[in-house]
Simulated assay, not measured.
Amino acid sequence: MKSTILFLSLFISTSQFFNPGSKIDVVKDQSKKENFADDWAALSKYQKENDLLRSQGIKENSVVFLGSSTFEFWKQKRPEYFSKNPYICRGISGQISPQLLVRFRQDVINLKPGAVIILAGSNDIAGNTGHVTNDKIMDNIKSMSELAKLHDIKVILCKYLPIYAYPWNKDIHPAEKIVALNQLIEGYARENKFTILDYWTPLVDDKKGQREELTVDGVHPNLAGYKIMETVTDKAINEALKRK
């Protein structure tokens, strides 16, 4: 009798050990890394920062800088520019305009800023997918602008920085495409009484690229370039916030 009970106990213990729902499997499930494959627009990057900002209370007349690497690197090189002002950097390196549009609610609207600076288009042009046109870039810029206006957020649209060539994709010749895109952006901004932030003019050289002394790679500004951008940015922000 005792041997029978012992056998049953061992059987039950062994069954639990090999049971797919056992504690070992639970530990394995808990140790799995969260899969962000569906987060195409990288919404997870600023989610916690956004939650913290909202819990602390957004500063009056705050401004969101929405863009890609130019904005992200700006905060890395000049963090004090953002910390001493009510400026919120929401740049993500490599992003194209439809990704900015997907992020617009989380990284702009939900923060209830006084204004948003939209810098978009270069990575679309640099992608060389064959499907991107300036008109498609403008569609995304228009959608973001309309969403901002709907939520009483002042819109600041950027004339993109001059770029003669992309070091990582020399088959692309972006200079004239950026000039044409900037013309579309400027025309749309004037039609809708949005503020225009001109990054192109103070940085351009005679080849329609960035002035050598102001850039690290012909695409991204160096510290001197960013300081010039700060001057024109502050002026545009002041103008936008005064608009009715």
Score class of each variant (00 low, 15 high):
residue 96 I to G: 06
residue 183 Q to C: 03
residue 35 N to M: 02
residue 85 N to P: 06
residue 27 V to Y: 13
residue 147 L to W: 07
residue 68 S to T: 12
residue 158 C to D: 09
residue 23 K to A: 14
residue 57 G to A: 12
residue 239 E to H: 04
residue 184 L to P: 03
residue 142 K to F: 07
residue 165 A to H: 12
residue 237 I to E: 09
residue 145 S to W: 05
residue 137 I to F: 02
residue 89 C to K: 01
residue 217 D to R: 00
residue 178 I to D: 06
residue 106 Q to W: 10
residue 158 C to R: 00
residue 56 Q to K: 15
residue 27 V to P: 00
residue 40 W to G: 02
residue 233 T to Q: 02
residue 131 H to Q: 14
residue 115 A to Y: 09
residue 173 H to K: 15
residue 11 F to S: 13
residue 214 L to S: 00
residue 60 E to W: 01
residue 66 L to A: 07
residue 64 V to N: 02
residue 71 F to N: 08
residue 33 K to A: 11
residue 188 Y to F: 15
residue 181 L to I: 11
residue 91 G to N: 05
residue 10 L to R: 02
residue 115 A to H: 12
residue 171 D to Q: 14
residue 92 I to A: 06
residue 200 W to R: 01
residue 39 D to G: 04
residue 4 T to N: 08
residue 70 T to G: 03
residue 6 L to G: 02
residue 171 D to W: 00
residue 77 K to V: 15
residue 153 I to C: 08
residue 211 R to P: 02
residue 236 A to Y: 08
residue 141 I to G: 04
residue 204 V to M: 03
residue 208 K to L: 15
residue 5 I to A: 12
residue 46 Y to F: 14
residue 233 T to W: 03
residue 51 D to T: 13
residue 187 G to R: 06
residue 106 Q to S: 14
residue 177 K to M: 09
residue 148 A to D: 11
residue 71 F to T: 07
residue 55 S to Y: 00
residue 240 A to P: 05
residue 25 D to V: 11
residue 146 E to N: 14
residue 56 Q to N: 14
residue 168 W to D: 14
residue 148 A to E: 08
residue 106 Q to C: 09
residue 163 I to M: 04
residue 38 D to G: 00
residue 15 S to E: 07
residue 153 I to Y: 07
residue 17 F to G: 03
residue 55 S to Q: 10
residue 163 I to W: 03
residue 205 D to W: 06
residue 79 P to A: 08
residue 156 I to E: 01
residue 235 K to C: 05
residue 166 Y to T: 07
residue 41 A to D: 09
residue 228 I to E: 11
residue 156 I to N: 01
residue 1 M to D: 15
residue 64 V to E: 08
residue 239 E to F: 06
residue 121 G to R: 01
residue 105 R to F: 11
residue 26 V to C: 05
residue 184 L to K: 12
residue 145 S to K: 06
residue 135 D to I: 08
residue 59 K to V: 13
residue 162 P to N: 10
residue 54 R to P: 05
residue 41 A to I: 04
residue 5 I to G: 00
residue 94 G to T: 10
residue 199 Y to P: 05
residue 204 V to S: 03
residue 164 Y to A: 14
residue 191 E to F: 06
residue 124 D to S: 07
residue 136 K to A: 14
residue 130 G to V: 11
residue 98 P to D: 12
residue 204 V to G: 04
residue 194 F to W: 10
residue 109 I to V: 14
residue 202 P to H: 07
residue 85 N to F: 06
residue 176 E to D: 15
residue 14 T to W: 01
residue 19 N to Y: 15
residue 188 Y to Q: 09
residue 48 K to I: 10
residue 164 Y to K: 11
residue 110 N to F: 07
residue 166 Y to N: 00
residue 84 K to S: 15
residue 119 L to C: 11
residue 241 L to E: 10
residue 22 S to M: 01
residue 14 T to V: 14
residue 227 K to C: 04
residue 198 D to T: 08
residue 94 G to W: 06
residue 196 I to M: 09
residue 190 R to K: 14
residue 211 R to M: 13
residue 16 Q to N: 10
residue 208 K to D: 12
residue 108 V to A: 04
residue 165 A to P: 00
residue 147 L to H: 00
residue 31 S to I: 07
residue 146 E to T: 11
residue 97 S to G: 04
residue 187 G to W: 03
residue 173 H to I: 11
residue 118 I to R: 00
residue 146 E to M: 14
residue 96 I to A: 11
